[in-house]
């Protein structure tokens, strides 16, 4: 319907009650509340098993593994795009890492190569999207199968388990105040990107493009450049996540990372980012990642059939989107 609010009879400058705005800001608050409740419920229900150090470590590392690419995915979705190829990029970068390790590369040599590989995968997506005008969903559907095929071509049915312990130490075992480095890295990234999105021109461009791409073009914002950077960053962060996964479980096989894209997208959507672009927050996606990992941890600790996890995730996504939809309807009134 034509939105025609020709309200020449209602004078106040602000047309919607301020209360509505608070809901938008408060979504992260609600999420945090849910996370805390969930932690409480799980620790009560698991008779303290939740607080077992190895369980805590695993939850934190898993959260980091999801949250790092989720931060990049948030930016991509905020510009109005999407990337379903990251599961395969995880597989691909992990394979590159594995092959390097097999050839006895040092960590300091292998890691940069892996990161550059991830960034290049993202850049390729971005080029097809900005130069070739291929819709993001199609581009990344394509590259999803391409990278997976490359992984098979490189690995076949073989496994690589030869992951240097340094990686495990780095991301999982070494801790500061009981918190693994991967989680600290993830939090650092969240802080950095929160700063960038809120206080750097580039960050605001990301949102501006998702809000109104036409206006962004008209005002001369570097639309294509921003998109290029955002997809490339996501590729890079995906490579980081792949390295963390290897630290967590040193096994690389042809299926590594399969379905990971959906976990990450689910975390971002749970975090309140609109799939239509223009709004969303890095912190929200971080909390969304936490929620996803807590749920699956709870399922394990409660000895619930693991199959419930899917049903619960699905319902969580629907409920989260429904809530944000209600908010938006209120606003557009």
């Amino acid at each position: 319907m034509k939105d025609m609010a020709l309200g020449w009879r209602t004078p106040p400058p602000v047309s919607k009650p301020a209360a509505v705005r608070r809901v938008g800001l408060g979504y992260e608050g609600i999420l945090l509340g849910i996370v805390i409740l969930l932690v409480g419920a799980i620790s009560l229900g698991s008779q303290g098993n939740f607080w077992n150090p190895s369980n805590i470590t695993s939850v934190l590392v898993n959260t980091a593994i999801t949250a790092v690419p989720a931060a990049g995915m948030t930016l991509v979705i905020v510009t109005g795009g999407i990337d379903v190829s990251i599961g395969s990029v995880v597989g691909f970068t992990a394979t590159v890492a594995g092959l390097a390790f097999e050839n006895h590369w040092a960590l300091a040599e292998a890691v940069p190569v892996v990161l550059v590989t991830g960034a290049l995968a993202g850049l390729l997506n971005a080029l097809a999207i900005t130069r070739g005008k291929v819709p993001p969903i199609i581009t990344t559907l394509g590259t999803m199968s391409i990278w997976r095929a490359v992984v098979y071509a490189l690995l076949g049915g073989n496994w690589i388990t030869q992951v240097p312990i340094g990686l495990t130490n780095l991301f999982v075992l070494d801790k500061v105040f009981g918190i693994p480095w991967s989680f600290i890295l993830a939090m650092g990234l969240v802080l950095l990107l929160t700063y960038v999105t809120r206080s750097r021109p580039f960050g605001r461009f990301v949102y501006a493009i998702g809000n109104n791409e036409e206006a962004a073009e008209v005002s001369g914002l570097p639309v294509n450049f921003v998109k290029l950077l955002v997809y490339t960053l996501l590729g890079l962060l995906t490579a980081v996540s792949a390295l963390m996964m290897l630290g967590q479980s040193p096994l690389i096989q042809a299926t590594t990372g399969t379905g990971f894209e959906l976990t990450v997208i689910a975390a971002v959507v749970l975090g309140g980012t609109s799939i239509l672009g223009g709004r969303g927050s890095i912190v929200g996606s971080f909390l969304g990642s936490m929620l996803v990992q807590l749920t699956s941890d709870g399922v394990i600790l409660f000895h619930i059939q693991p199959f419930w996890e899917g049903v619960v995730s699905g319902l969580m996504i629907l409920i989260a989107v429904f809530i944000s939809l209600l908010n938006r309807r209120e606003e557009s009134r």
């Binding site: 750097r200 021109p201 605001r204 809000n211 109104n212 005002s219 914002l221 709004r279």
Partner: peptide
């Protein structure tokens, strides 16, 4: 008006030519 609905008024005004701090922050 061509606007960015979810950005603040201030950001709408300055989006294309932001004023920056020494390190480039808004």
């Amino acid at each position: 008006p061509l606007i960015y609905p979810h950005l603040t008024v201030l950001e709408n005004i300055f989006i294309a030519r932001p004023m920056r701090k020494r390190w480039g922050g808004l």
